[in-house]
Every structure is written in C-alpha cells, then in structure tokens.
C-alpha cells in the first residue's frame, strides 16, 4: 500500500489514515455479502438460478445462508402477504447489524400485479429497503447488477455508521 516515501516527522505524515479503516472494513463487508435464503415466490426461483451453476453468485462472495443470524443481506424475493409480514419483521430483527435489504421484483416493491386484500403493497411498509429491483420476475442478471450496486453503496458508506442505534421515530 505504502510504496511511496513517507516523512514520518511531518505533521499527519503517518501512512495510515482514518479513511482507510473505512475502506478496509467496507471492502470486507461488500465482498462477503451473505444472503438469507428467503425465496417467497417466483423471484425465489430466479434467486436460486443466480446462485446455481450458470450465474454463479459465489464469485461475488454472495453465499446463501439459511439462518438470519449469519446473513448480511435480506433479499425479499417474491410476494409478501399480510400473513407473512410479521415473519419478515422478525427475520429482519434477528439479522445482525450491519444489514441490508434488497427488494426483488414488482411484488416486493409495490405489490405488483397483486393489488388484493391479501398482499402487502410493498415490502418497504414492513422493513427498510436499500435497493429495489424492477421486473416480474427480474432476471438473474438483474439481481447480480443489484448486488453490485449494493456493494457500491456499502463502499460509499461510513463503516461505523451502521453501528449507531437506529431511532424508530
């Protein structure tokens, strides 16, 4: 990293700056985004296809985990119904900070084509969402691009920012 000559005696001349901690932490976080296996409906199939042989999510460092305790990112893949809504809240609460949420597909974004009595009209009514992916169902390429955008977002964040307690109101 520090190939150049550093004048240690100069004020502020140390080769490590505070911002590099951010960078190092964010580098680690953004390249090991473990996702929760949370296939709710059709998008879940495309999510599985992204993880399978052709689209190979592992090269992004995205590995699907079955437990919310081990997951960093919640991909809401499919229709969120009112009956299921309390579980998504519970799973989100069980995930450890820092955590991110991708809303995949029209149903999770806005309710999509299912404007009925049973469907939550957008997952962001239940949990905060970082990224919305359009499509019904989005192709695996879309999800890959979405994960890359999320990595970009994480890299631009402050590493300690997420550890602040979130105010509910």
């Amino acid at each position: 990293m520090a190939q150049h000559q550093v004048n240690y005696t100069q004020d502020g001349g140390l080769p490590v700056a505070l911002t590099t901690i951010d960078k190092v932490v964010n580098w680690g976080r953004s390249n090991s985004l473990w996702a929760l296996t949370y296939g709710l409906a059709c998008c879940g199939i495309e999510m599985m296809a992204s993880g399978a042989s052709r689209y190979d999510f592992d090269r992004f460092g995205t590995i699907f985990r079955a437990s919310p305790r081990q997951a960093d990112v919640l991909i809401i893949a499919g229709t969120l119904t009112k009956k299921h809504a309390e579980f998504i809240k519970r799973l989100y609460d069980q995930m450890t900070e820092p955590r991110w949420v991708i809303s995949m597909g029209s149903c999770a974004n806005t309710g999509g084509m299912f404007n009925t009595y049973a469907t939550v009209q957008g997952a962001d009514r239940i949990v905060p969402v970082d990224l919305y992916l359009p499509g019904c169902a989005p192709r695996p390429e879309t999800l890959q691009y979405g994960v890359m955008l999320l990595q970009k977002k994480i890299r631009s964040e402050k590493a300690i920012k997420a550890q602040k307690p979130k105010r509910l109101l």
Binding site: H84, T116, A118
Partner: peptide, 11 residues
C-alpha cells in the same frame, strides 16, 4: 398454509 395467498380467484 396461506403464507402466499394472493387472492387469485378473486382477482
């Protein structure tokens, strides 16, 4: 069951 009930028949 019913966690994915979207009311298709009514739709």
């Amino acid at each position: 069951i019913g966690y994915l009930h979207r009311g298709m028949e009514k739709m």
